[in-house]
Design a protein around this nucleic acid. Structure first.
Length: 338
DNA sequence: TCTGGGGTCCTAGGACCC
DNA sequence: TCTGGGGTCCTAGGACCC
């Protein structure tokens, strides 16, 4: 055992969704490709992935398709084909798990891999080669002493590269960066920290714990300071994933103004969620015009997975909504028995 | 630039109990 | 009389991530 270090590798496919599309449409290679919604940029929807070429025009994931079309009128817009990406992803993950490696899948296009080695870069290069040979897809690999470092390292390796971050290099890389450079800190938390006079990762790293606990809660506050110090759970776990809930939601092309239409939409979604694991609670989500979201839930009398009790609970939850403004989205979530 | 769909975890506040 | 404090459960909302 002695002498061999435990590293965390973070593997992230480069422009994954766009890359899968390019593989089956080689004639689009080098052109700006935008995948999102049903492929119609005049409709409501956002960008899932933009190819590197499209990114040169300022197209980014999460951006409304309409905006993407304005920024890059010559882009090719393609609909999301979840099954194709799922299939490609399975090949990638199976490749990572060869040789009995511990793999923690984080989504379609990324995973953590545990590595006992003194040469993690060699391991990373080997992964890149095997993934490419199996799928013709490129990936970048971050190397770290824990998941946080590895995850943040990947971006520095893109595209198709390898990059290492350790406690030794943490502050020189991140000390001066804004707090939302960290994985787990978004725009809201960053803004709130700013208002407290904390702008950089270095400032957050030495922030007063009781003050942060008071502002963000007893668990979140100290966790933020840990993040800023480059500290996180090092464990890569390959425990099989057990979903806590499943949901379906729809954004309407035109807002619904009649409440019976809303009821019908909730019923349709609830039906689609029946037939799986035993459900104990149903939560309905309504997003009103202009963009205000509210949720209400209803528990089932006893765990069930049939259509009737799930639809009944969904409609019961919907009764708790009293606002009758135009509705742009409805969603239904089923919560499973623990 | 008018903002998808599918998830997870944490927190505050109220209800309820002893 | 109108006053405790702690623990737990549930709900809705918030934030973040892919």
């Amino acid at each position: 055992m002695g002498g061999v270090t435990v590293w965390v590798l973070h593997v992230d496919l480069d422009q994954f969704v766009a890359a899968v599309e390019l593989l089956r449409r080689p004639e689009l290679e080098g052109r700006p490709v935008v995948v999102g919604g049903d492929g119609d940029p005049t409709k409501r929807g956002v960008v899932s992935t933009a190819s590197y070429k499209a990114r040169e025009f300022g197209v980014r994931s999460g951006m409304p398709l309409r905006t993407a079309a304005k920024r890059c009128p010559e882009a090719i817009f393609l609909p999301v084909d979840a099954e194709a990406y799922e299939a490609a992803s399975e090949v990638v993950m199976a490749t990572l798990a060869e040789n009995g490696a511990i793999v923690q899948v984080m989504g379609w296009d990324e995973a953590f891999v545990g590595a006992r080695t003194d040469d993690p870069e060699a391991e990373a290069r080997d992964i890149q080669r095997r993934v490419f040979e199996a799928t013709r897809l490129y990936c970048s690999v971050g190397v770290g002493e824990n998941k946080l470092q590895a995850k943040l390292a990947t971006d520095y390796g893109k595209p198709a590269g390898v990059f290492r971050i350790t406690h030794g290099t943490w502050f020189e890389l991140f000390g001066g960066q804004p707090t939302d450079a960290l994985w787990g800190i978004g725009s809201k938390t960053s803004k709130k920290l700013s208002a407290m006079g904390i702008e950089t990762v270095r400032q957050l790293a030495s922030a007063d714990l009781p003050t942060l606990a008071k502002a963000f809660g007893p668990s979140t506050g100290p966790w933020l300071v840990q993040l800023a110090n480059g500290i996180s759970d090092a464990e890569v776990s390959n425990e099989p994933w057990v979903a806590r809930s499943r949901s379906k939601e729809t954004t309407f092309q035109q807002d619904l103004t009649e409440w019976p239409e809303v009821q019908a939409a909730v019923e349709t979604l609830a039906r689609q969620l029946a037939g799986g694991r035993q459900v104990i609670q149903v939560v309905v989500k309504v997003r009103y015009k202009p963009f205000f979201t509210s949720t209400h839930g209803a528990r089932l009398a006893s765990p069930a997975n049939e259509e009737t009790p799930i639809v009944e609970a969904a409609l019961k939850a919907l009764e708790k909504f009293t606002d009758r403004r135009p509705v742009r989205l409805v969603g239904v979530q089923t919560v499973f028995e623990p």
